[in-house]
Simulated scan of single mutants.
Amino acid sequence: MNPESVRREIEVLTADLISAGLCVDQNFPVLTTAGESAEVNFGKTTDLSVTLKNIAYVEAYAVLVKNRSYNFRLIDGGLVQLLYQFQEGSLCRHRLAFFPSPDLLEYQNNSEVYDQDDLYGDVIERNVVTVPIRFDYDPEAAADYHHPISHLTIGQYKNCRIPVSGGIGPFFFINFILRSFYNTPFRKFCSEIKESANTFAETITSSERRHLHIRVSDSAQA
C-alpha cells in the first residue's frame, strides 16, 4: 500500500460507515507530503499525546471529543483514529486507535435510538468495561520480542505490546473493531462496508512468532 491508496481506503470506509448509520461524526482523511515524507491523518492531530499522559481516561477522552481528534465517532461514542506515515513510499509508522466512550454519554443523550433496536444491546450492558486499544507500527523503536515493530497495546498499559505479524491496513483494523466490539450491528451492516485485502509486508521475528501473536492476514502484501 502507498500513501494515496491508504487515503482512498480510509475515505471509502468513512463513507460506508456513515451510510450504514454506524458513524455520527467524522473527519475525512488528509494526505500531506513534504519531500520524500508523507502522512495520512484526519487533520486534527495536535493533541494526540493527551491519551499517553498520566491523567484519567475520561479526561483524555473528553479532550479528543472536544477537539474532534478522530477519523470518526461511532454511534455509541467510540472514537477511531487512523494515522499512517511513509518515507520514500514505504510505511515507517502507524497509529490505529479505538477509544470507547467511558460513560456511554451517547446512549444517555440518544437512548431512544438504542432502546428501539436491540442490535445495540451489547454496547449498553452494565458489565461492559471500557478498554482503549491501539495498534502501533514503529521500526525505529523496535527491540526483538520486547518491542515488536508492529504490536497491540490494550488499556494504555505502557509495557503491553502483543506482537502483530506486520503493519495493518485500514480495512483490517476497522473490521477488527466492528467484529470485536460491534458484533451484532456489524452482522447487520457488513454487506455495506467494502472489503479490502490491502495490507503491508510481514515484520514479525522468529522469536515473536513462537509466542502468542496476532496475524493480520494469510498472505501479507507489500
Rank of each mutant, 00 (worst) to 15 (best):
Q85S: 15
Q116G: 11
N54T: 09
A34G: 07
P185I: 04
V6A: 05
N175D: 08
L178P: 15
V131I: 06
E112G: 00
S219L: 13
I75Y: 10
Y157M: 02
V12E: 02
V24Q: 03
Y114Q: 01
F99L: 13
R126N: 05
D218R: 15
Q26R: 10
E202H: 14
E59T: 13
T51D: 00
C92F: 06
R210I: 07
S69R: 07
F200Y: 11
L152G: 11
Y114V: 03
E106H: 13
L104T: 01
V58Q: 03
D103P: 15
L74E: 00
F200D: 00
G167N: 05
D103G: 15
N183A: 11
I177V: 13
E112C: 03
V12W: 03
G77L: 05
A143I: 15
E140A: 15
I193Q: 04
D118A: 11
Y157P: 04
Q87I: 12
T32H: 10
D122M: 06
V164F: 07
G121E: 05
D25Y: 09
D118Q: 11
A56L: 13
S219W: 14
V63N: 11
P185Y: 09
N2C: 07
D115A: 09
V50F: 12
R209Q: 02
C190T: 09
V164A: 04
P29T: 06
L52T: 08
Q85H: 14
Y120W: 15
I149M: 07
V113E: 00
S191A: 10
Y61V: 07
K66Q: 11
L105I: 07
A34D: 13
L83D: 03
T33W: 14
V129A: 02
E11M: 10
R8G: 00
Q26H: 14
Q156G: 02
